[in-house]
Protein backbone atom coordinates (compact mmCIF):
# COMPACT_ATOMS: atom_id res chain seq x y z
CA UNK A 1 0.00 0.00 0.00
CA UNK A 2 2.86 2.35 0.88
CA UNK A 3 4.45 1.64 -2.49
CA UNK A 4 1.20 2.15 -4.40
CA UNK A 5 0.52 5.45 -2.65
CA UNK A 6 4.03 6.67 -3.45
CA UNK A 7 3.73 5.61 -7.09
CA UNK A 8 0.35 7.32 -7.42
CA UNK A 9 1.59 10.53 -5.81
CA UNK A 10 4.53 10.54 -8.21
CA UNK A 11 2.34 9.91 -11.25
CA UNK A 12 0.00 12.71 -10.20
CA UNK A 13 2.88 15.11 -9.68
CA UNK A 14 4.25 14.27 -13.13
CA UNK A 15 0.82 14.74 -14.73
CA UNK A 16 0.41 18.12 -13.07
CA UNK A 17 3.86 19.03 -14.37
CA UNK A 18 2.81 18.27 -17.94
CA UNK A 19 1.46 21.57 -19.32
CA UNK A 20 -0.45 19.89 -22.18
CA UNK A 21 -2.38 17.48 -19.94
CA UNK A 22 -3.13 20.21 -17.45
CA UNK A 23 -4.37 22.67 -20.07
CA UNK A 24 -6.50 20.26 -22.09
CA UNK A 25 -8.03 18.62 -19.04
CA UNK A 26 -8.86 21.81 -17.09
CA UNK A 27 -8.71 25.11 -19.01
CA UNK A 28 -9.72 23.90 -22.46
CA UNK A 29 -13.17 22.52 -21.45
CA UNK A 30 -13.85 25.78 -19.61
CA UNK A 31 -13.03 27.71 -22.77
CA UNK A 32 -15.47 25.56 -24.74
CA UNK A 33 -18.11 26.15 -22.08
CA UNK A 34 -17.67 29.91 -22.43
CA UNK A 35 -17.86 29.65 -26.22
CA UNK A 36 -21.11 27.70 -25.91
CA UNK A 37 -22.42 30.35 -23.48
CA UNK A 38 -22.85 27.74 -20.77
CA UNK A 39 -25.08 25.40 -22.76
CA UNK A 40 -26.30 23.02 -20.04
CA UNK A 41 -26.56 19.99 -22.32
CA UNK A 42 -22.87 20.20 -23.23
CA UNK A 43 -21.36 19.60 -19.78
CA UNK A 44 -21.64 15.76 -19.53
CA UNK A 45 -20.06 15.53 -23.00
CA UNK A 46 -17.19 17.76 -21.93
CA UNK A 47 -16.58 15.50 -18.95
CA UNK A 48 -16.28 12.54 -21.34
CA UNK A 49 -13.93 14.68 -23.43
CA UNK A 50 -11.72 15.43 -20.42
CA UNK A 51 -11.19 11.76 -19.53
CA UNK A 52 -10.67 10.83 -23.20
CA UNK A 53 -7.96 13.49 -23.55
CA UNK A 54 -6.17 12.00 -20.53
CA UNK A 55 -6.75 8.27 -20.96
CA UNK A 56 -6.64 7.97 -24.75
CA UNK A 57 -4.71 11.09 -25.75
CA UNK A 58 -1.96 11.31 -23.12
CA UNK A 59 -1.64 7.91 -21.39
CA UNK A 60 -0.29 5.86 -24.34
CA UNK A 61 2.66 8.23 -24.81
CA UNK A 62 3.43 8.19 -21.08
CA UNK A 63 3.33 4.39 -20.76
CA UNK A 64 5.28 3.81 -23.98
CA UNK A 65 7.95 6.27 -22.87
CA UNK A 66 8.28 4.40 -19.56
CA UNK A 67 8.97 1.27 -21.57
CA UNK A 68 11.31 3.03 -24.00
CA UNK A 69 13.33 4.61 -21.18
CA UNK A 70 13.52 1.19 -19.50
CA UNK A 71 11.83 2.64 -16.44
CA UNK A 72 9.48 -0.36 -16.41
CA UNK A 73 12.47 -2.68 -16.51
CA UNK A 74 14.06 -0.78 -13.64
CA UNK A 75 10.86 -1.11 -11.60
CA UNK A 76 10.73 -4.83 -12.37
CA UNK A 77 13.80 -5.42 -10.20
CA UNK A 78 12.26 -3.70 -7.17
CA UNK A 79 9.83 -5.59 -4.92
CA UNK A 80 6.86 -4.02 -6.72
CA UNK A 81 5.52 -5.12 -10.07
CA UNK A 82 5.50 -2.61 -12.94
CA UNK A 83 1.79 -3.43 -13.21
CA UNK A 84 1.39 -1.43 -10.03
CA UNK A 85 2.71 1.59 -11.93
CA UNK A 86 -0.13 1.15 -14.42
CA UNK A 87 -2.63 1.11 -11.57
CA UNK A 88 -1.07 4.29 -10.23
CA UNK A 89 -1.30 5.85 -13.69
CA UNK A 90 -5.04 5.07 -13.84
CA UNK A 91 -5.67 6.56 -10.40
CA UNK A 92 -3.69 9.67 -11.36
CA UNK A 93 -5.72 10.02 -14.58
CA UNK A 94 -8.98 9.61 -12.66
CA UNK A 95 -7.91 12.24 -10.12
CA UNK A 96 -6.81 14.81 -12.71
CA UNK A 97 -9.96 14.11 -14.73
CA UNK A 98 -12.04 14.54 -11.59
CA UNK A 99 -10.32 17.85 -10.81
CA UNK A 100 -10.96 19.13 -14.34
CA UNK A 101 -14.56 17.90 -14.31
CA UNK A 102 -15.33 19.34 -10.86
CA UNK A 103 -13.98 22.71 -11.97
CA UNK A 104 -16.11 22.56 -15.11
CA UNK A 105 -19.26 21.56 -13.22
CA UNK A 106 -18.82 24.27 -10.58
CA UNK A 107 -18.19 26.99 -13.18
CA UNK A 108 -21.18 25.87 -15.24
CA UNK A 109 -23.48 25.99 -12.21
CA UNK A 110 -22.12 29.12 -10.57
CA UNK A 111 -21.15 31.06 -13.67
CA UNK A 112 -23.85 30.06 -16.12
CA UNK A 113 -26.74 28.96 -13.92
CA UNK A 114 -26.76 25.43 -15.30
CA UNK A 115 -29.10 23.15 -13.37
CA UNK A 116 -26.97 20.95 -11.04
CA UNK A 117 -26.73 17.20 -11.71
CA UNK A 118 -29.83 15.34 -10.49
CA UNK A 119 -28.07 12.19 -9.33
CA UNK A 120 -24.54 12.79 -8.12
CA UNK A 121 -23.65 9.17 -7.13
CA UNK A 122 -24.86 7.98 -10.54
CA UNK A 123 -22.85 10.72 -12.26
CA UNK A 124 -19.81 9.72 -10.20
CA UNK A 125 -20.23 6.06 -11.18
CA UNK A 126 -20.56 7.02 -14.84
CA UNK A 127 -17.47 9.22 -14.54
CA UNK A 128 -15.42 6.42 -13.00
CA UNK A 129 -16.49 3.92 -15.67
CA UNK A 130 -15.84 6.38 -18.48
CA UNK A 131 -12.43 7.37 -17.12
CA UNK A 132 -11.24 3.80 -16.56
CA UNK A 133 -12.61 2.82 -19.99
CA UNK A 134 -10.54 5.60 -21.62
CA UNK A 135 -7.43 4.41 -19.76
CA UNK A 136 -8.00 0.80 -20.85
CA UNK A 137 -8.07 1.96 -24.49
CA UNK A 138 -4.90 3.96 -23.80
CA UNK A 139 -3.18 0.82 -22.55
CA UNK A 140 -4.21 -1.07 -25.68
CA UNK A 141 -2.55 1.64 -27.80
CA UNK A 142 0.58 1.57 -25.61
CA UNK A 143 0.64 -2.22 -25.95
CA UNK A 144 0.34 -2.23 -29.74
CA UNK A 145 2.51 0.75 -30.71
CA UNK A 146 6.13 0.21 -29.82
CA UNK A 147 7.79 3.58 -29.47
CA UNK A 148 6.81 6.55 -27.37
CA UNK A 149 6.42 9.02 -30.23
CA UNK A 150 4.25 6.62 -32.19
CA UNK A 151 2.08 5.78 -29.18
CA UNK A 152 1.59 9.45 -28.42
CA UNK A 153 0.64 10.19 -32.03
CA UNK A 154 -1.76 7.26 -32.35
CA UNK A 155 -3.32 8.25 -29.03
CA UNK A 156 -4.06 11.70 -30.43
CA UNK A 157 -5.28 10.29 -33.75
CA UNK A 158 -7.71 7.99 -31.96
CA UNK A 159 -8.81 10.54 -29.37
CA UNK A 160 -9.51 13.57 -31.58
CA UNK A 161 -12.03 12.10 -34.03
CA UNK A 162 -13.60 10.18 -31.16
CA UNK A 163 -14.40 13.24 -29.02
CA UNK A 164 -16.16 14.82 -32.02
CA UNK A 165 -17.96 11.75 -33.35
CA UNK A 166 -19.02 10.36 -29.95
CA UNK A 167 -20.83 13.54 -29.02
CA UNK A 168 -18.34 14.66 -26.38
CA UNK A 169 -16.96 17.91 -27.82
CA UNK A 170 -20.04 18.65 -29.97
CA UNK A 171 -23.52 17.12 -29.67
CA UNK A 172 -24.14 14.25 -32.09
CA UNK A 173 -27.36 15.97 -33.20
CA UNK A 174 -25.18 18.57 -34.91
CA UNK A 175 -23.40 15.94 -37.02
CA UNK A 176 -24.31 14.86 -40.55
CA UNK A 177 -26.14 11.50 -40.68
CA UNK A 178 -23.22 9.41 -41.92
CA UNK A 179 -20.87 10.74 -39.24
CA UNK A 180 -23.51 10.32 -36.57
CA UNK A 181 -23.79 6.64 -37.43
CA UNK A 182 -20.03 6.17 -36.89
CA UNK A 183 -20.59 7.38 -33.34
CA UNK A 184 -22.77 4.32 -32.68
CA UNK A 185 -19.66 2.18 -32.82
CA UNK A 186 -17.27 4.32 -30.77
CA UNK A 187 -16.46 3.32 -27.19
CA UNK A 188 -16.73 6.89 -25.95
CA UNK A 189 -20.38 7.16 -27.02
CA UNK A 190 -21.74 5.04 -24.13
CA UNK A 191 -19.52 7.17 -21.88
CA UNK A 192 -21.26 10.34 -23.06
CA UNK A 193 -24.66 8.65 -22.69
CA UNK A 194 -23.90 7.36 -19.19
CA UNK A 195 -22.66 10.76 -18.03
CA UNK A 196 -25.70 12.44 -19.59
CA UNK A 197 -27.93 9.95 -17.75
CA UNK A 198 -26.20 10.67 -14.45
CA UNK A 199 -26.64 14.39 -14.98
CA UNK A 200 -30.34 14.17 -15.79
CA UNK A 201 -30.98 11.51 -13.17
CA UNK A 202 -31.97 8.64 -15.45
CA UNK A 203 -30.06 5.40 -15.07
CA UNK A 204 -28.45 4.59 -18.41
CA UNK A 205 -28.10 0.86 -17.79
CA UNK A 206 -27.06 -0.29 -21.24
CA UNK A 207 -24.30 2.34 -21.74
CA UNK A 208 -22.87 1.55 -18.29
CA UNK A 209 -22.84 -2.18 -18.96
CA UNK A 210 -21.20 -1.44 -22.30
CA UNK A 211 -18.51 0.64 -20.60
CA UNK A 212 -17.80 -2.15 -18.13
CA UNK A 213 -17.55 -4.60 -21.04
CA UNK A 214 -15.10 -2.35 -22.90
CA UNK A 215 -12.98 -2.06 -19.74
CA UNK A 216 -12.79 -5.86 -19.42
CA UNK A 217 -12.09 -6.41 -23.13
CA UNK A 218 -9.59 -3.53 -23.33
CA UNK A 219 -7.69 -4.66 -20.25
CA UNK A 220 -7.58 -8.24 -21.50
CA UNK A 221 -6.28 -7.11 -24.89
CA UNK A 222 -3.66 -4.86 -23.30
CA UNK A 223 -2.47 -7.66 -21.01
CA UNK A 224 -2.25 -10.08 -23.94
CA UNK A 225 -0.47 -7.66 -26.29
CA UNK A 226 1.77 -5.67 -23.98
CA UNK A 227 5.50 -5.92 -24.55
CA UNK A 228 7.72 -5.08 -21.62
CA UNK A 229 10.72 -4.27 -23.80
Amino acid sequence: MKAFTALTATELRLLFRDPASLFFMTAFPLMLLVLKRGDSGAVPGYIAMIVAIGGIGALPGIVASYRERKFLKRLAITPVSPVMLFGAQVVAQVVLGLAGSALLVVVSIVGFGVEPPRNLPLLAAAFLLCSVMACSLGFVIAAVVRNARGASLIGMLVMFPMIFLAGAAVPRKALPDALRRIGDFLPLTPGVDALGGGWSGTVAVFPMVLLAGIIVAGTAAAVALFRWE
Binding site: K2, D18, K70, L75
Partner: peptide, 21 residues
Amino acid sequence: DSSLPERIKVAEALRLFGSLY
Protein backbone atom coordinates in the same frame (compact mmCIF):
# COMPACT_ATOMS: atom_id res chain seq x y z
CA ASP B 1 20.84 2.47 -19.85
CA SER B 2 17.68 2.29 -17.77
CA SER B 3 16.33 5.73 -16.93
CA LEU B 4 13.53 7.62 -15.20
CA PRO B 5 10.68 9.86 -16.38
CA GLU B 6 12.00 13.23 -17.67
CA ARG B 7 10.22 15.37 -15.13
CA ILE B 8 10.82 13.43 -11.92
CA LYS B 9 13.13 15.25 -9.52
CA VAL B 10 16.16 13.68 -7.87
CA ALA B 11 14.73 13.80 -4.33
CA GLU B 12 11.36 12.47 -5.54
CA ALA B 13 13.00 9.53 -7.28
CA LEU B 14 14.98 8.58 -4.18
CA ARG B 15 11.94 8.89 -1.93
CA LEU B 16 9.82 6.89 -4.39
CA PHE B 17 12.30 4.03 -4.69
CA GLY B 18 12.83 4.04 -0.93
CA SER B 19 9.10 3.50 -0.44
CA LEU B 20 9.07 0.43 -2.70
CA TYR B 21 11.01 -1.63 -0.13
